Simulated scan of single mutants.
Amino acid sequence: MRLADYLSVVGDPGRDDVEGWLYPTDAHLMSVINDLQIGRGFRGDILEIGAYKGKSAILLGFFPKSGESLTVCDIFDSEALVSDGNARENATFYPGLHQADFEKNYLRFHDRLPRVHVGSSEELREVVAARSCRFVHIDGGHTYEVARADMETARRVLGPAGVVVVDDWSSAHIPGVAMALWEQYLSGALTPLAFTKGKFYATWDPAGLTAEDVSDAVAASAGIEARTAVRLGRYAAASVTMTFGDWQRYNAGLRAVYSKLYADGGASAPQIVGF
Protein backbone atom coordinates (compact mmCIF):
# COMPACT_ATOMS: atom_id res chain seq x y z
CA MET A 1 0.00 0.00 0.00
CA ARG A 2 1.13 3.55 -0.72
CA LEU A 3 0.82 6.61 1.49
CA ALA A 4 -1.92 8.02 -0.74
CA ASP A 5 -3.90 4.82 -0.28
CA TYR A 6 -3.70 5.03 3.49
CA LEU A 7 -4.74 8.67 3.43
CA SER A 8 -7.79 7.53 1.48
CA VAL A 9 -8.55 4.94 4.18
CA VAL A 10 -8.27 7.48 6.99
CA GLY A 11 -10.64 9.77 5.11
CA ASP A 12 -13.28 7.07 4.67
CA PRO A 13 -14.92 6.00 7.96
CA GLY A 14 -16.51 3.04 6.25
CA ARG A 15 -13.07 1.55 5.48
CA ASP A 16 -11.11 2.80 8.49
CA ASP A 17 -11.26 0.01 11.05
CA VAL A 18 -8.05 0.73 13.00
CA GLU A 19 -9.09 1.93 16.44
CA GLY A 20 -7.64 5.26 17.52
CA TRP A 21 -7.67 8.98 17.01
CA LEU A 22 -6.32 10.38 13.74
CA TYR A 23 -8.43 13.00 12.01
CA PRO A 24 -7.96 13.24 8.21
CA THR A 25 -6.81 16.84 8.60
CA ASP A 26 -3.81 15.75 10.62
CA ALA A 27 -3.03 12.77 8.42
CA HIS A 28 -2.80 15.13 5.44
CA LEU A 29 -0.95 17.87 7.31
CA MET A 30 1.67 15.50 8.68
CA SER A 31 2.15 14.20 5.15
CA VAL A 32 2.53 17.76 3.82
CA ILE A 33 5.26 18.49 6.37
CA ASN A 34 7.02 15.23 5.56
CA ASP A 35 6.98 16.17 1.88
CA LEU A 36 8.37 19.61 2.70
CA GLN A 37 11.26 18.12 4.65
CA ILE A 38 12.07 15.54 1.99
CA GLY A 39 11.75 18.09 -0.81
CA ARG A 40 14.25 20.41 0.86
CA GLY A 41 16.76 17.66 1.51
CA PHE A 42 16.32 17.33 5.26
CA ARG A 43 16.88 13.81 6.52
CA GLY A 44 16.44 12.10 9.86
CA ASP A 45 14.50 9.43 11.66
CA ILE A 46 10.87 9.49 12.79
CA LEU A 47 9.78 9.02 16.41
CA GLU A 48 6.32 8.43 17.86
CA ILE A 49 5.70 8.58 21.61
CA GLY A 50 2.43 6.79 22.34
CA ALA A 51 1.09 4.43 19.70
CA TYR A 52 -2.17 2.90 20.99
CA LYS A 53 -3.46 0.57 18.22
CA GLY A 54 -1.20 2.03 15.51
CA LYS A 55 -3.41 4.39 13.53
CA SER A 56 -0.87 7.25 13.37
CA ALA A 57 2.16 4.94 13.43
CA ILE A 58 0.89 3.33 10.23
CA LEU A 59 0.89 6.78 8.63
CA LEU A 60 4.38 7.58 9.92
CA GLY A 61 5.62 4.26 8.59
CA PHE A 62 5.31 5.64 5.07
CA PHE A 63 7.63 8.58 5.86
CA PRO A 64 11.15 7.13 6.23
CA LYS A 65 13.32 7.16 3.14
CA SER A 66 16.45 5.12 2.54
CA GLY A 67 18.64 5.24 5.64
CA GLU A 68 15.85 6.55 7.87
CA SER A 69 13.78 4.63 10.41
CA LEU A 70 10.64 4.86 12.53
CA THR A 71 10.78 4.26 16.29
CA VAL A 72 7.56 3.77 18.24
CA CYS A 73 7.44 3.99 22.03
CA ASP A 74 4.58 2.74 24.21
CA ILE A 75 4.20 0.76 27.41
CA PHE A 76 1.55 -1.48 25.78
CA ASP A 77 0.80 -4.39 28.11
CA SER A 78 4.22 -4.41 29.75
CA GLU A 79 4.79 -3.86 33.44
CA ALA A 80 6.67 -0.62 32.82
CA LEU A 81 6.61 1.75 35.75
CA VAL A 82 4.41 4.80 35.26
CA SER A 83 3.19 7.56 37.54
CA ASP A 84 -0.05 7.21 39.47
CA GLY A 85 -1.65 9.80 37.18
CA ASN A 86 -0.64 7.90 34.07
CA ALA A 87 -1.78 4.61 35.53
CA ARG A 88 -5.25 6.04 36.17
CA GLU A 89 -5.40 7.48 32.65
CA ASN A 90 -4.36 4.18 31.09
CA ALA A 91 -6.96 2.26 33.09
CA THR A 92 -9.70 4.71 32.04
CA PHE A 93 -8.94 5.36 28.37
CA TYR A 94 -6.67 2.51 27.23
CA PRO A 95 -7.79 -0.71 28.92
CA GLY A 96 -6.74 -3.92 27.23
CA LEU A 97 -3.94 -2.29 25.22
CA HIS A 98 -1.77 -5.06 23.80
CA GLN A 99 1.38 -4.88 21.72
CA ALA A 100 0.06 -7.72 19.58
CA ASP A 101 -2.90 -5.58 18.50
CA PHE A 102 -0.57 -2.79 17.44
CA GLU A 103 1.66 -5.17 15.48
CA LYS A 104 -1.28 -6.86 13.76
CA ASN A 105 -2.68 -3.51 12.61
CA TYR A 106 0.69 -2.18 11.48
CA LEU A 107 1.52 -5.27 9.43
CA ARG A 108 -1.72 -4.94 7.50
CA PHE A 109 -0.20 -1.87 5.82
CA HIS A 110 3.57 -2.48 5.99
CA ASP A 111 5.87 -5.40 5.27
CA ARG A 112 7.78 -5.13 8.55
CA LEU A 113 7.43 -3.58 11.98
CA PRO A 114 9.13 -0.35 13.02
CA ARG A 115 11.61 -0.36 15.87
CA VAL A 116 9.38 -0.72 18.91
CA HIS A 117 10.51 0.41 22.35
CA VAL A 118 8.25 -1.11 24.98
CA GLY A 119 8.59 0.96 28.12
CA SER A 120 8.42 4.45 29.53
CA SER A 121 9.21 7.36 27.23
CA GLU A 122 11.76 8.47 29.84
CA GLU A 123 13.95 5.61 28.59
CA LEU A 124 14.19 7.12 25.11
CA ARG A 125 17.28 9.06 26.12
CA GLU A 126 19.09 5.72 25.98
CA VAL A 127 17.41 4.63 22.75
CA VAL A 128 17.26 7.61 20.38
CA ALA A 129 20.37 9.65 19.66
CA ALA A 130 20.44 13.43 19.99
CA ARG A 131 19.62 15.34 16.79
CA SER A 132 18.91 12.11 14.91
CA CYS A 133 15.25 12.80 14.07
CA ARG A 134 13.38 15.15 11.75
CA PHE A 135 9.83 14.37 12.91
CA VAL A 136 8.48 13.57 16.39
CA HIS A 137 4.82 12.86 17.16
CA ILE A 138 3.95 13.13 20.87
CA ASP A 139 0.81 11.34 22.02
CA GLY A 140 1.98 9.69 25.21
CA GLY A 141 1.16 10.37 28.85
CA HIS A 142 -0.99 13.45 29.36
CA THR A 143 0.06 14.57 32.82
CA TYR A 144 2.10 17.77 32.89
CA GLU A 145 5.21 15.99 34.15
CA VAL A 146 5.19 13.36 31.41
CA ALA A 147 4.22 15.79 28.65
CA ARG A 148 6.98 18.15 29.74
CA ALA A 149 9.56 15.35 29.70
CA ASP A 150 8.37 14.23 26.26
CA MET A 151 8.70 17.78 24.93
CA GLU A 152 12.27 17.88 26.22
CA THR A 153 12.94 14.53 24.58
CA ALA A 154 11.63 15.87 21.27
CA ARG A 155 13.81 18.95 21.57
CA ARG A 156 16.87 16.79 22.23
CA VAL A 157 16.38 14.31 19.38
CA LEU A 158 15.22 16.70 16.63
CA GLY A 159 17.83 17.83 14.15
CA PRO A 160 17.81 20.38 11.31
CA ALA A 161 14.30 21.44 10.28
CA GLY A 162 12.91 19.04 12.87
CA VAL A 163 9.18 19.25 13.59
CA VAL A 164 7.33 18.24 16.74
CA VAL A 165 3.62 17.40 16.58
CA VAL A 166 1.84 17.58 19.93
CA ASP A 167 -1.46 15.73 20.23
CA ASP A 168 -4.24 16.80 22.65
CA TRP A 169 -2.85 20.31 22.97
CA SER A 170 -6.37 21.76 23.32
CA SER A 171 -8.17 18.99 25.24
CA ALA A 172 -9.83 20.45 28.33
CA HIS A 173 -9.77 17.21 30.34
CA ILE A 174 -5.95 16.91 30.14
CA PRO A 175 -4.59 20.46 30.57
CA GLY A 176 -1.12 19.21 31.46
CA VAL A 177 -0.31 18.81 27.77
CA ALA A 178 -1.16 22.44 27.01
CA MET A 179 0.83 23.58 30.04
CA ALA A 180 3.93 21.71 28.83
CA LEU A 181 3.51 23.03 25.28
CA TRP A 182 3.03 26.67 26.22
CA GLU A 183 5.91 26.47 28.69
CA GLN A 184 8.20 25.64 25.76
CA TYR A 185 6.63 28.35 23.65
CA LEU A 186 6.95 31.04 26.32
CA SER A 187 10.63 30.20 26.75
CA GLY A 188 11.06 31.82 23.33
CA ALA A 189 12.60 28.83 21.58
CA LEU A 190 9.59 27.00 20.15
CA THR A 191 8.11 28.40 16.93
CA PRO A 192 4.56 27.41 15.86
CA LEU A 193 4.08 26.16 12.31
CA ALA A 194 0.34 25.33 12.26
CA PHE A 195 -2.38 23.85 14.41
CA THR A 196 -5.53 21.80 14.06
CA LYS A 197 -8.28 21.00 16.50
CA GLY A 198 -6.29 18.06 17.78
CA LYS A 199 -2.59 18.70 17.16
CA PHE A 200 -0.05 21.52 17.37
CA TYR A 201 2.88 21.65 14.92
CA ALA A 202 6.08 23.49 15.85
CA THR A 203 9.87 23.61 15.52
CA TRP A 204 12.87 24.60 17.59
CA ASP A 205 14.98 25.27 14.48
CA PRO A 206 14.79 28.95 13.40
CA ALA A 207 16.51 28.03 10.14
CA GLY A 208 14.09 25.22 9.32
CA LEU A 209 10.51 25.27 8.12
CA THR A 210 8.34 28.33 8.72
CA ALA A 211 4.63 28.84 9.24
CA GLU A 212 4.51 30.43 5.79
CA ASP A 213 6.16 27.36 4.25
CA VAL A 214 3.52 25.13 5.78
CA SER A 215 0.60 27.38 4.79
CA ASP A 216 1.84 27.58 1.21
CA ALA A 217 2.23 23.81 1.01
CA VAL A 218 -1.25 23.29 2.46
CA ALA A 219 -2.70 25.65 -0.15
CA ALA A 220 -1.22 23.43 -2.84
CA SER A 221 -2.61 20.24 -1.30
CA ALA A 222 -5.99 18.60 -1.76
CA GLY A 223 -8.37 18.00 1.11
CA ILE A 224 -7.13 20.60 3.60
CA GLU A 225 -6.87 24.36 3.77
CA ALA A 226 -5.17 26.95 5.96
CA ARG A 227 -7.27 29.71 7.47
CA THR A 228 -5.99 33.21 8.23
CA ALA A 229 -2.97 33.05 10.51
CA VAL A 230 -3.55 33.69 14.20
CA ARG A 231 -0.99 35.76 16.05
CA LEU A 232 0.41 33.95 19.08
CA GLY A 233 2.62 36.48 20.80
CA ARG A 234 5.51 37.28 18.50
CA TYR A 235 4.64 34.48 16.06
CA ALA A 236 1.67 33.66 13.88
CA ALA A 237 0.39 30.33 12.64
CA ALA A 238 -2.63 29.19 10.67
CA SER A 239 -5.42 26.88 11.72
CA VAL A 240 -5.64 23.99 9.25
CA THR A 241 -8.96 22.29 8.57
CA MET A 242 -10.55 19.98 6.04
CA THR A 243 -12.02 21.67 2.99
CA PHE A 244 -15.78 22.01 3.26
CA GLY A 245 -16.52 19.40 0.63
CA ASP A 246 -14.17 16.85 2.17
CA TRP A 247 -15.61 17.51 5.61
CA GLN A 248 -19.14 16.94 4.30
CA ARG A 249 -18.17 13.59 2.79
CA TYR A 250 -16.27 12.53 5.91
CA ASN A 251 -19.08 13.59 8.23
CA ALA A 252 -21.62 11.67 6.15
CA GLY A 253 -19.40 8.61 6.41
CA LEU A 254 -19.16 9.00 10.18
CA ARG A 255 -22.94 9.20 10.49
CA ALA A 256 -23.34 6.04 8.44
CA VAL A 257 -20.79 4.11 10.52
CA TYR A 258 -22.14 5.17 13.88
CA SER A 259 -25.76 4.67 12.83
CA LYS A 260 -24.93 1.06 12.04
CA LEU A 261 -23.04 0.62 15.29
CA TYR A 262 -25.88 2.01 17.36
CA ALA A 263 -28.41 -0.08 15.45
CA ASP A 264 -26.35 -3.18 16.26
CA GLY A 265 -25.89 -2.26 19.91
CA GLY A 266 -23.41 0.59 19.77
CA ALA A 267 -22.95 0.93 23.50
CA SER A 268 -20.63 -2.07 23.49
CA ALA A 269 -19.31 -1.71 19.94
CA PRO A 270 -15.60 -0.88 19.47
CA GLN A 271 -14.60 2.59 18.41
CA ILE A 272 -13.94 2.62 14.69
CA VAL A 273 -12.76 6.17 14.23
CA GLY A 274 -11.94 8.75 16.84
CA PHE A 275 -12.18 12.49 17.23
Rank of each mutant, 00 (worst) to 15 (best):
R2M: 12
R2I: 11
V10L: 05
P13L: 03
D16L: 07
D17W: 04
A27I: 08
N34P: 10
I46D: 01
I49R: 04
G50V: 00
S56Q: 02
L59F: 04
K65M: 11
T71F: 12
V72F: 01
V82N: 05
S83H: 06
F93K: 00
F93I: 12
P95R: 08
L97T: 13
H98N: 14
D111E: 15
R112P: 03
L113K: 11
L113V: 08
R115K: 09
V116C: 06
L124S: 03
L124A: 07
A129L: 13
R131F: 05
S132W: 06
G141E: 06
T143Q: 09
Y144L: 05
Y144C: 00
R148G: 00
A149N: 05
E152T: 14
P160L: 07
I174M: 05
A180Q: 13
T191F: 02
A194R: 12
F200W: 13
T203I: 10
A207P: 12
V214E: 01
A217I: 04
S221N: 11
A222S: 15
T228Y: 14
L232A: 12
Y235P: 02
Y235I: 03
F244K: 13
G245H: 01
Q248D: 15
N251S: 14
V257H: 04
A263S: 11
A269H: 02
P270S: 10
I272M: 11
I272G: 08
I272R: 08
